[in-house]
Design a protein around this nucleic acid. Structure first.
Lengths: 112, 112
DNA sequence: CACTAACGTAAGCCTTGACTAACCTTCTGA
DNA sequence: TCAGAAGGTTAGTCAAGGCTTACGTTAGTG
C-alpha cells in the first residue's frame, strides 16, 4: 500500500484546488484555518483536501496546541516526476510484450 | 483555451488506464484496435480514452485508410513536468500575497 | 453499388468524488 | 472544570466521469 503512493499523489494533483493548496504551503507553513480562509469553500472541504494531500505524501502535518500546521513535501512531487519518467522509459520493455502476447494480431505495418 | 492544456494533461494522467495506454504508444505507433485488444474493456471505452489523451496533447493521431494510428507525444509530458515545477517555484510569489490579503488573519507564528 | 472492416459518437447507467451542514474531539485559559 | 477556539469526521447531495450497448461514418473490395 506504499507502492501506490505516487499513483495517489498523481490523482491528488489532478484537482485544481489541491494544487492551489499545495502552492500555499510549498514554502510556508500554514495552519488549516489560514489555508481555508484563502478559499471560498467551507473549512471541512479544505480539511478533506488536506487529508488527501497528506495520505498522498505531498504535505506533512505538525500539531501545535489546537492548531495543525501543514507544509509541502518536496519528496512527494519528486515521486510523481519519477512515475512520469518511468511511464516513458519502462514502455520499452512492456509495450511489445503486451501487444504481441495478448492481442495476437498480425499487424501489417502500414506504409513507411 | 490552450493555456489549460497542461491542466488537462494532468487530469488525463490521473486515470490508470490512460497511463497504460500511453505506455503502449510511447515508443510504438499502434492502431486503435491493437490498443483496445490489449485491455479487457470495450473498444469504445478505449476510443474515449484516446480522445481525451489527444485533446490533452499527450498523443498524436494519424490516419491510414480505415485505421487510426496513435503515438505518444513527449512534449505533452514535458508540459506536465513544467506545471509541477512551477507549482513549487511560483508559490514564492503567490503564497504570502494570497494569505495576507484575502484572509487578513493576524497570524501569531507559533513556536520556532 | 453493396458489403465489410475499423473506428468514432450518443445515450444511459453506475460509481467516484467534491462539497455542505451538523456533530464530535482536543486543547487552552479563566 | 467549564467555555471557547481550532479543526477533523460523518451523512447526504449533486455533478463529473468511466463504462457499455447501439448506432453512425469512412474507406477499401468484389
Amino acid at each position: 500500500m506504499d507502492a501506490e503512493r505516487p499513483d495517489e499523489a498523481l490523482r491528488a494533483l489532478a484537482e485544481p484546488r489541491r494544487r492551489a493548496i499545495l502552492q500555499l504551503v510549498a514554502h510556508d507553513e500554514l495552519s488549516a484555518g489560514e489555508i481555508a480562509a484563502t478559499f471560498d469553500v467551507t473549512r471541512p472541504a479544505v480539511s478533506q483536501h488536506l487529508t488527501i494531500l497528506k495520505n498522498a505524501g505531498l504535505i506533512t502535518e505538525r500539531r501545535d496546541g489546537t492548531r495543525r500546521l501543514y507544509r509541502g513535501e518536496p519528496a512527494g512531487l519528486q515521486a510523481v516526476r519519477e512515475l512520469l519518467d518511468e511511464l516513458w522509459s519502462s514502455s520499452l520493455d512492456v509495450a511489445r510484450r503486451l501487444v504481441e502476447a495478448d492481442a495476437g494480431v498480425d499487424r501489417r505495418r502500414a506504409a513507411r
